[in-house]
Design a protein around this nucleic acid. Structure first.
Lengths: 107, 107
DNA sequence: TTGCTATTTCCACCATCCTCGAAATAGAAT
DNA sequence: ATTCTATTTCGAGGATGGTGGAAATAGCAA
């Protein structure tokens, strides 16, 4: 995971509509949800939803699986875990309080 | 934490430059880093950095503290924890696989 | 083939973002 | 008051994003 990739994923989640899509899928769990059902729940144009789904899929945050005539969408928990890990990674590695702050130099 | 607020924070982290700023602050730990030092490390125009810092501060992801002539910036870990919590919150609440998926209905 | 449903692609408009240099401001020191 | 450093605000450019309607596609059914 590099900065560019992580930023792409965060940007994908950084739009209210897409975040709502993603959370709806998280709530749906492993069962996932068809695109049409997502559209009903969220109430946006199909084209708009498709556009947003595409971005979520490109960044790896959502997966799709064909089931006869409908496409089932699922949140990709592994990608999320990886992203969260990146955010808190290497915390305090460069900690070196030159001035007198509240102690805790190299704890 | 609501969707709008979370989206704002995610969008703030969704720009490569801002994400780099944030991660640099995370690495710096509790000591924080002056704006000027951030600029040196990242190598962008001061005005651009100021712009990005402003957005990170508005969303609560970064805090600033005046120290004589310089402003010390710090990553706000509490905000990050809250954001991460929001992302995985209520996972699988709506799980109800109608079709025959790989079991795990209401585990 | 024809028709049907589910979903995506195309297109356009409007809004917002990213970036930088130049100018303005805040605060301390002389 | 003047000067100096650190940082922010202003203004503008080009680029990208968000949205929905219309049209195109994918796959199945008859």
């Amino acid at each position: 995971m590099n900065v560019e990739e992580a930023a792409k994923q965060l940007e994908a989640l950084g739009n209210p509509t897409r975040l709502q899509v993603y959370r709806t899928l998280v709530r749906a769990g492993d069962c996932g949800l068809p695109v049409g059902r997502l559209q009903e729940k969220i109430g946006i144009a199909a084209s708009t939803l498709s556009h947003h789904l595409h971005r979520l899929i490109l960044t790896g945050l959502v997966t799709q699986e064909r089931q006869v005539t409908t496409l089932i969408c699922r949140a990709n928990y592994l990608a999320m875990n990886s992203l969260v890990g990146f955010l808190v990674d290497e915390c305090c590695v460069d900690a070196s309080c030159a001035a007198d702050q509240n102690g805790v130099a190299a704890a």
